[in-house]
Design a protein around this nucleic acid. Structure first.
Length: 647
RNA sequence: GCUGGUGUAGCUCAGCUGGUAGAGCAACUGACUUGUAAUCAGUAGGUCGGGGGUUCAAUUCCGUCCACCAGCUCCA
C-alpha cells in the first residue's frame, strides 16, 4: 500500500500501482468525471499513470491551464482522426492547443468547405461516442521514423528528425489513429463533451512562406455545451465591437475600391477624433521638452542608402521611379520612417554635450508598402500618421530619457483608458539571421544588455521576442490585442546605436572629442489610425466625452423651443464643446434614439418647462434621464468632464 | 504574397437549379406639433464590384482584375 496525499492535505491509502483515475473515483465520482490530468508530486501526469510510491496528488480539471490545453489538444487529435477517416491522401502536420481552442494542419488536395466542417464534426461526434481509450507509447528514433514513413507521414518524420538527440519520442493511439505527440492527453475520447469547428485557413508548414501551404482547421472545445455556447456568443459580441464594422457604421471612416488597399478615407467624425488626439499629444510633448519638426514625405534614394533603408527595408517602401537605376539617376521614395529626415535637423550645426538631450517630435505621415494580404481596417494600412519622435542623447542620459519615454507612453495609455489592455515585449534581434540587421553581434549584445538593464530597473514586466527587433536596434514594444485576439504593436520605444554613426551625427564632449550619440526612436501614442481602431473596439464606439466627435445634441420638443436650443448650442460651442442642434420635425423619442445609436454622450431636451426656467433636461448615453438642470450648470459639468479627460 | 470566404439601392440583407431584381432602415415629399430608444402615407433610388468569355439569354456559369473579411504568431 502507498500513501497518497490529496490537495486538501488528507491522505488515502491505495494499492501500489493504482492509476490516477482510479484514485479520483475513490475521492468522488464527480471529480473522476471532470478529471483531465493530474499533478503527482507537482508533475503534470496523465490519468492512466500508475502510482508506485507515496506521493501527493492533485486532480486537474478543465479549469486549470494544463487541463484546458490537454483537453483541446485531445480534441485536435479527434479532429485529425475524423479527417483521416473521411478523406484520402491526407498527411498530418501539427495540431496544438491554442489560447482559446485548437487547430490541426493538414496537407490535402482541395479545400475544406463549410459543408466539410459539418461532416467532420459529425465524424468527431462518432469518435467521441466510441469512447476510444487513448494510449501513449514510446519508440526509439529509428523505429519512430520507420513507423511514420510506413504511414506516409512525411511531416512527422521531419519533426522527429528535428527533435534533440536525447528526446523521448512518444506517440498517442486512439482506435485506428496514431499521432506523434509529446502530450499530455486525456485518457479517453469520450471525455470531450462539446466542441465546434470554427473556421478553415491556410497556414504555411512551420510558418515559413517558402514552405507548402497547408489547410488548417480551427476549433474549440469545452467540457459542457453551455460553456461552448457562451464562448461562441462572446465571439459574436466581439465581432460587434470590430472597429471595421463600427467605424463604418458610426461614419468615422470608409474605404473606396478605386483608391486602393490600406488607404482609408477618414470621414469628418473620424478625422475629428484624430485631430483631438493629435492636439493632445503635441501639447503634452511640448510640455515634456520636445521640439516639433516638419520634414518631407519623400526623399532621394541617397538618403535611404545612408540610413540603410534602401538595403534593409526597400520592400516596404513606395519608390517613384526604377529602383534599379538609383545609382545613375534620381529615384525618389516615400518615407517609411521619419528617422533619417529628423536627423538632418540635428546635423544643421555642431552640437555640444551641453545641447543634449535633444528631443524632436513630429506628427508624421508615413507610407509603407505592406503586402496585399496584410491590410486590416485602420489597424494595418499603407499610409498612416504616427506620433514620431527621436531623442538624441549621451550614453549617460540614455536610461533617464528612455524611462521618460516610457512614462509618456504610460501617461497616454492611462489617459486613453488602454493601460490595462497592453503588455510589454522586449524585441531582440535574431542572431541566426544576421543579414536582417546592421551592426556587429558585439554591438547588438551590448545594446541589448543595456536595454535589459533599463527595463529591469524600471520594474516593468515584459516578454522577450527574438527576431522582433528593428534592423537598427532593439525595441520595447507595447502590444495590444484587437477584438479578434490578434496582437499588434501600439507603441514602441527603440534604442539605436547605429544610425548616428551612419549619418555622422556627433556631439563635442566635455573633453573636446567628438562622440556619436545614442538615439531613442519612440512614439508616444503610436500611429493615430491604429490607436483610433483600438479605441473604437475598447469603447464599442461609445467614446469618452473628451474624445467623442459630437459631445452634445440639443433637441427642442417642438419647433417653438428651437431658438432657445440654438442658443444653448451657441453657449456650448463658445466653451469649445462639440454640440449640435437637432430641431427636425420628428418625435422626441425618434431623435433620442438616433442620438443614442450614434453614441453621443449627452442629449439635452428642452420643452416649455425648460425654456421658462432656463434649464435643459439632461439625458446621458450611459445613465439615461438625469433630470433638468440650469444650462450654466450643465456647461460647467461637461466642461469639467472634458478638461479632466474623464473615461 | 499565400489559403479560404465575401462583394446586389446610401446602410443591413433576400433573390432555388441562367429568363435583366426585392424588403427594412436612410433620403426626398406631404400630413402630424410631438416630453426621453423608431408617427403615418407617398415618391425616388440599382449597367447586381470592374473588364472579358460561354449562351438565344448571365446578378446567377467560367476565367481575370479590384476591394473587403478571416487566417498564415501558438510548432510533436
Amino acid at each position: 500500500m502507498i500513501d497518497v496525499t490529496l490537495k486538501d492535505g488528507s491522505k488515502i491509502q491505495v494499492e501500489k500501482g493504482t492509476s490516477v483515475i482510479e484514485v479520483a473515483k475513490m475521492i468522488s465520482h464527480g471529480l473522476a468525471r471532470n478529471a483531465v490530468l493530474a499533478e503527482v508530486d507537482g508533475v503534470v501526469t496523465e490519468l492512466g499513470t500508475a502510482l508506485d510510491k507515496d506521493c501527493t496528488l492533485n486532480i486537474l480539471t478543465f479549469d486549470s491551464e494544463e487541463g484546458k490545453k490537454a483537453y483541446r489538444h485531445t480534441t485536435s487529435h479527434i479532429l485529425a482522426q475524423a479527417v483521416m477517416r473521411l478523406y484520402k491522401d491526407v498527411r498530418l502536420a501539427i495540431g496544438p492547443a491554442t489560447e482559446n481552442g485548437f487547430y490541426y494542419d493538414f496537407d490535402i488536395d482541395g479545400t475544406f468547405t463549410s459543408e466539410d466542417l459539418v461532416k467532420i464534426e459529425e465524424e468527431m461526434k462518432k469518435i467521441v461516442s466510441e469512447k476510444l481509450p487513448i494510449e501513449r507509447f514510446v519508440l526509439p528514433r529509428d523505429k519512430a521514423i520507420e513507423y511514420m514513413n510506413e504511414l506516409g507521414e512525411t511531416y512527422k518524420v521531419e519533426l522527429i528528425n528535428d527533435l534533440p538527440e536525447d528526446a523521448e519520442i512518444s506517440f498517442y493511439r486512439q482506435g485506428e489513429f496514431v499521432d506523434l505527440c509529446s502530450g499530455p492527453h486525456l485518457d479517453n475520447t469520450g471525455r470531450v463533451k462539446a466542441f465546434k469547428l470554427i473556421q478553415t485557413a491556410g497556414a504555411y508548414w512551420r510558418g515559413d512562406e517558402k514552405n507548402k501551404m497547408l489547410k488548417r482547421i480551427y476549433g474549440t472545445s469545452f467540457p459542457d455545451k453551455k460553456l461552448l455556447k457562451e464562448y461562441l456568443e462572446k465571439l459574436e459580441e466581439a465581432r460587434k465591437r470590430d472597429h471595421n464594422r463600427l467605424g463604418r457604421e458610426l461614419e468615422l471612416f470608409t474605404t473606396v475600391d478605386y483608391i486602393g488597399q490600406g488607404l482609408p478615407i477618414m470621414l469628418p467624425k473620424g478625422a475629428k477624433i484624430l485631430q483631438i488626439l493629435q492636439r493632445f499629444v503635441e501639447d503634452e510633448e511640448e510640455k515634456r521638452g520636445y521640439q516639433i519638426t516638419k520634414t518631407p514625405f519623400m526623399a532621394k534614394s541617397d538618403l535611404y542608402k545612408i540610413s540603410q533603408h534602401w538595403y534593409h527595408y526597400r520592400d516596404g517602401m513606395f519608390i517613384i521611379g526604377d529602383p534599379e537605376k538609383a545609382d545613375e539617376e534620381e529615384v525618389l521614395a516615400l518615407r517609411p520612417m521619419t528617422c533619417p529626415f529628423q536627423f538632418q535637423a540635428y546635423l544643421t550645426k555642431t552640437r555640444s554635450y551641453r545641447d543634449l538631450p535633444i528631443r524632436y517630435a513630429e506628427t508624421s505621415t508615413l507610407f509603407r508598402n505592406e503586402s496585399s494580404g496584410e491590410m486590416h481596417g485602420l489597424i494595418r494600412v499603407r499610409q498612416f500618421t504616427i506620433s514620431e519622435g527621436h531623442l538624441i542623447v549621451t550614453p549617460s542620459q540614455l536610461e533617464e530619457e528612455f524611462r521618460d519615454c516610457l512614462d509618456l507612453a504610460t501617461f497616454m495609455l492611462k489617459t486613453l483608458g488602454l493601460h490595462e489592455d497592453v503588455f510589454f515585449r522586449f524585441s531582440k534581434w535574431d542572431p541566426e539571421n544576421k543579414e536582417k540587421y546592421i551592426g556587429s553581434p558585439e554591438e547588438w549584445e551590448n545594446v541589448q544588455s543595456a536595454m535589459k538593464t533599463i527595463l529591469d530597473n524600471s520594474g516593468l514586466e515584459y516578454t522577450e521576442g527574438v527576431g522582433e527587433a528593428a534592423f537598427y536596434g532593439p525595441k520595447l514594444d507595447i502590444q495590444i490585442r484587437n477584438v479578434h485576439g490578434k496582437e499588434d504593436t501600439l507603441i514602441t520605444i527603440q534604442i539605436d546605436f547605429q544610425l548616428a554613426e551612419r549619418f555622422g551625427m556627433v556631439y563635442v564632449d566635455r573633453d573636446g572629442t567628438k562622440k556619436h550619440p545614442y538615439i531613442i526612436h519612440r512614439t508616444s501614442i503610436g500611429c493615430y489610425e491604429r490607436t483610433l481602431a483600438l479605441l473604437i473596439e475598447k469603447y464599442a464606439g461609445a467614446f469618452p466625452t473628451w474624445l467623442a466627435p459630437v459631445q452634445v445634441r440639443v433637441m427642442p420638443i417642438v419647433e417653438k423651443q428651437a431658438d432657445y436650443c440654438a442658443e444653448v448650442v451657441r453657449k456650448l460651442k463658445a466653451l469649445g464643446v462639440r454640440a449640435e442642434l437637432d430641431d427636425r420635425n420628428e418625435k422626441i423619442g425618434y431623435r433620442i434614439r438616433e442620438a443614442q445609436v450614434e453614441k453621443i454622450p449627452y442629449m439635452l431636451v428642452a420643452g416649455d418647462r425648460e425654456l421658462e426656467e432656463g434649464k435643459v433636461s439632461v439625458r446621458s448615453r450611459k445613465q439615461g434621464e438625469m433630470g433638468s438642470i440650469a444650462v450654466d450648470e450643465f456647461c460647467r459639468m461637461i466642461k469639467e468632464e472634458i478638461d479632466e479627460k474623464r473615461i
